[in-house]
Simulated assay, not measured.
Amino acid sequence: MSSNILQLNQVSKNYRIGAANLSVLRDISFDIEEGATVAIVGPSGSGKTTLLGLCAGLDHCSEGTIVLNGISLHELNEDQLAQVRNAHVGFVFQNFQLLPTLTALENVLVPMELRGMKNMKNKAMDLLDKVGLSARMNHYPSQLSGGEQQRVSLARAFANSPKILFADEPTGNLDAETGLLVENLLFQLNEELGTTLVIVTHDMELAAKTQRIIPIRGGAII
């Protein structure tokens, strides 16, 4: 029997703007099983990226509870959240977010160094090989195409052997052909390494490749 790696119970997120209270998410509840692939879909402004940030411990919810791999995120301070992210979570962003002064190899090494892992360089090189970038590992982000940069960010996302990987519009800045390559690599690595995958996207073709779709509109699940 699979256990749940992520549990949300009546989660809401509000922001104060002057005297007004802006409600971005309302009463979101769902569980995600360990090893599952899930897409959170919805139009721009629906709250899906905010939801992803809450699930990943990048922000606190205003109400409700979030439990990630048995850890109650809503009870943690910023330093504790950072420790949880480093130990359990991988990220892939639409705009790659590679460090421009580091080579592809050095970018992949960063999360490993934060965890003090052993045999780091060999593992980083192996991950770059898996995404087809062995020959580009000493190149800087500015010397790589968008698709190559996203493949480096994929290798980096899996570098700390995360229990769960969050991908925010992972193919949003890529052309169709390159996007398909990155999608295939994402699912391939995910299956190979046994990670839970949560993708935020408005691309229904990408969402259809996951085992489960959670639709969100106007800050609520529909």
Rank of each mutant, 00 (worst) to 15 (best):
Q80I: 01
S62T: 14
V84Q: 07
L51N: 10
M120N: 07
G64S: 11
E33L: 14
D31N: 11
L76V: 01
S62Q: 07
N77H: 02
I71A: 01
S44F: 08
S46V: 13
N119E: 13
L114E: 08
T103Q: 10
K48A: 11
D59A: 02
E106H: 12
G45S: 05
R85Y: 07
E78P: 02
G70C: 03
Q97M: 10
G47F: 08
G116H: 07
D59F: 03
L102V: 07
L51G: 11
A104N: 06
N107A: 00
T37Y: 10
A56F: 06
L52P: 07
R115Y: 00
S62G: 06
L52M: 15
L81P: 05
Q83F: 00
S44A: 12
M112Y: 03
F91N: 04
T49H: 01
C61E: 12
A39C: 13
A56Q: 00
N119G: 09
D59Y: 02
L99T: 08
L58C: 04
S46L: 11
G70I: 01
E113S: 06
G116F: 03
K118V: 11
A82S: 08
S72D: 15
L102W: 05
V67R: 14
L99S: 00
E75Q: 15
T103V: 10
I66G: 10
H88G: 00
L105F: 01
K118T: 12
M117K: 12
F91M: 01
V110H: 02
G35F: 15
S46W: 09
L73T: 10
G64I: 05
V38A: 03
M117Y: 09
E106A: 09
N107H: 01
S44N: 13
G116N: 05
C61A: 15
L98N: 00
L76Y: 07
L102C: 09
S72L: 13
F30K: 06
V92D: 07
M112G: 06
V108A: 05
G47P: 11
S44I: 03
G35N: 14
D79I: 12
V89K: 02
F30D: 13
V38H: 01
T37L: 05
P111S: 05
D31E: 09
L98S: 08
V89A: 03
K118Q: 13
A39Y: 04
G116E: 08
K118G: 08
E63W: 08
A36K: 15
G47T: 11
L73S: 11
E78W: 04
V110G: 02
L81Y: 09
N86R: 14
V84A: 04
L102R: 10
N86H: 08
G70Y: 00
G35Q: 14
K118Y: 03
I66Y: 10
T49Q: 07
N107R: 08
N107Y: 02
H88A: 11
A82T: 09
V38T: 12
S72F: 08
P111G: 02
E34K: 15
L73Q: 07
I40A: 02
H88T: 05
E34W: 13
G116L: 05
R85A: 00
H74G: 08
Q94H: 10
T65N: 14
G70N: 01
L58W: 05
L76A: 01
